[in-house]
Amino acid sequence: MADSYDRPLPVRQPESDFYWERAKAHELWLRHCNACGQTYFYPRDICPHCFSRDVEWRQASGRGTLHAFGIVHRGPTPAFREHVPYVVALVDLEEGPRMPTNLVGVEPDAEHVHVGMALEVTFDDVTDEITLPKFRPAG
């Protein structure tokens, strides 16, 4: 799988190395601000809400609900065209922030995908170096 993976991979940044390292260990970690108490996505070293530098990493529960979705029938780039249909999703995490992902483990069809459905994280080891956190219906 690692050799044949043809879709875009994240280019890790210094402030997100930890996020992607923990994803490889099948853990989802978020940035939390000790000054204003908010947990946010995506990782940044200065809080986007109150601009405090007093921030730390916290492990997420991995639970959330589906905020919005799309079912992609026309792949946006050639690499995605052989993988349609697939479900793109925005998930409201239990800790507060919203993150983009794929919804997997469900028929890619509007009969089976519902805003508000309970979800849990699952990890897709797409290459030896990159694991993508994805979500599936909570079991």
């Binding site: 879709r7 875009p8 994240p10 995506y42 919005a68 799309g70 793109v88 993150m99 797409v126």
Partner: peptide, 23 residues
């Protein structure tokens, strides 16, 4: 956007706007 959305195939306006429309 490219780090956190593109790997999931969330690329380009039709996909982004379709998610907003679902909401």
């Amino acid at each position: 956007t490219l780090q956190y959305e593109s790997p999931y195939g969330i690329i380009g306006p039709p996909i982004a706007y379709s998610m907003a429309a679902s909401r």
